[in-house]
Design a protein around this nucleic acid. Structure first.
Lengths: 175, 175
DNA sequence: GTCTATAGGCAGATAGAC
DNA sequence: GTCTATCTGCCTATAGAC
């Protein structure tokens, strides 16, 4: 287990950082806050992450990669894509809850465009090929329905609500 | 116009502050940023707003009051309430875009609970009296559909999309 | 109503001991 | 890998001139 200590510490830092970032925002969270939460000093953080921004990137990178995979993947039916997106979000609820709000992530030069492009590609795939502008509006509504449901429902009730959410999002898509 | 100068300056400060807060977040925006944007110094801001937090409150207070009025108001049909909520958001798009993200607003002791209560009351009124848990999930979806649509659609196209959004949100509500 | 000047604190980041 | 100590700079906020 000595060899795993490095990874454990790193993961623990990321966990606490995510928790604080979500609650207070990226800019509103100091490295001291994170260090205190983990139980050691600011300086020690710098061994694991050379800069504050690296925490943000380490948190978002896997989400972006996974979303890219989802959007690029082979879901032929809008309904199955919506369901897959819902599962994707449920699985990563904490990070997603953070990303959807964080101005720093939306403002970040390297992240903002990537995320926006992904969300637009997802919307357009949900809308389907040959979609009209109105179709894309409804697709955006469907995605919004999924977001709001996941973020506002008590996590433990999510599994039970899953099918209701998918059905509601599909209904929004159909208009 | 001399008498109006005070109000104009105040409004201008709030406008710029909102713009910067939305882009960079509350914590990520310094009073210097705002002062520079308005065209005078930090210290001058303090004449109009005794503390940074007062900018936040001045921005959110009218929105909260208006939302409270909307939720308390007499919209008997879920559809008319959803439409009214959409119009409410369209009318205040910039502030709402800010509120929906800002951790500082959600974390603020005096604001967080109030806002959350309002959103829950709104959801429950949309769900209607005697609603089941599933009804409330669908109501949350409907609200999310409205949010996402308004925030992702180019503002100038919103009037044209309005009816599509309402229809889509109502469909989400019906399931 | 806006300014200059500055207090006082905390931020992110680094150096180097252990 | 984690520590202490410290640098530098920006932050909010205040005092007081104009």
């Amino acid at each position: 287990m000595t060899q795993v200590a490095g990874r454990d510490t790193r993961s623990e830092i990321l966990d606490k950082a995510l928790e604080l970032f979500t609650r207070q925002g990226y800019a509103g969270t100091s490295l001291r806050d994170i260090a205190d939460a983990v139980g050691f000093t600011k300086a020690a953080l710098y061994y694991h992450f050379p800069a504050k921004e690296d925490l943000l990137l380490a948190l978002l990178d896997p989400v972006i990669k996974a979303l890219d995979a989802l959007v690029t993947g082979e879901h032929t039916h809008p309904a199955s894509l919506l369901a897959a997106y819902l599962d994707f979000i449920i699985e990563r609820r904490p990070v997603v809850g953070f990303v959807l709000r964080e101005p720093a992530a939306l403002d970040h030069p390297a992240l903002a465009q990537v995320q926006w492009d992904l969300i637009v590609r997802l919307r357009d795939r949900v809308a389907g090929p040959g979609s009209t502008p109105d179709d894309r509006v409804r697709a955006a509504c469907a995605l919004g329905a999924v977001h709001m449901a996941v973020l506002s429902i008590d996590p433990e009730n999510l599994p039970a609500a899953r099918d209701v959410i998918v059905a509601s999002a599909c209904a929004a898509l159909a208009g």
